[in-house]
Amino acid sequence: MSLPNPADEGITFDTFMEGVWRQNPVFVMVLGMCPVMAVTVSAINGISMGIATTFVLTCSCFLVSLLRKLVPKEVRIATYIVIIATFVTLVDYLIQAGSLALYEALGAFIQLIVVNCIILGRAEAHASRNPPLKAVVNALGMGLGFTIGLFALGGTREILGAGKLFGISLFGEHFQPWVVMVLPPGGFFVLGGWLLLFALFRGKAAEGGHTHGA
């Protein structure tokens, strides 16, 4: 990414909002689709995965930004991966200590946060060129955007696939679950639907004269 990124520009509201709206990882950049598809069968799974990713993203970006002047460019990717893998291992232990049921539900996708392109992408494109505080604010925004995306998918799939939201029944016990929604094809249907909606919103917002960011 060769975005103009003047390092001396201070922290603005857009530093945070970039990841939530203008460059939302799920709805705009369509990055990290592997966990997006696989774990979002319920709202709580989506949010947990989002929080875990946000934690890894924020901590990694902080450390990468802190060490940005020290790390030689030849070994930067190797360094970033070591840092990211460390925080993924931490999250792995923390989730196991918190709830084994959640750990089983998220399965291998916790470990796979390592290869989530959002994290390496942000470390390379943003954290390695900006001071720690700004990197953290930006990473938090990205993480929030990712979490919102996962929640939107997980919530929709849980409502249609089980008639529940956060495990609370919405339609009574006679609800007919749409089995397809908790199966992999449902992930694609729902993602397609949300991409469509988000594109419509952004189109409307742009027409209305609102401009986000620079």
Binding site: W178, V179, V180
Partner: peptide, 10 residues
Amino acid sequence: AFVQAAFPVA
């Protein structure tokens, strides 16, 4: 195909 996957019982 969609309703077959969504409502296999019905």
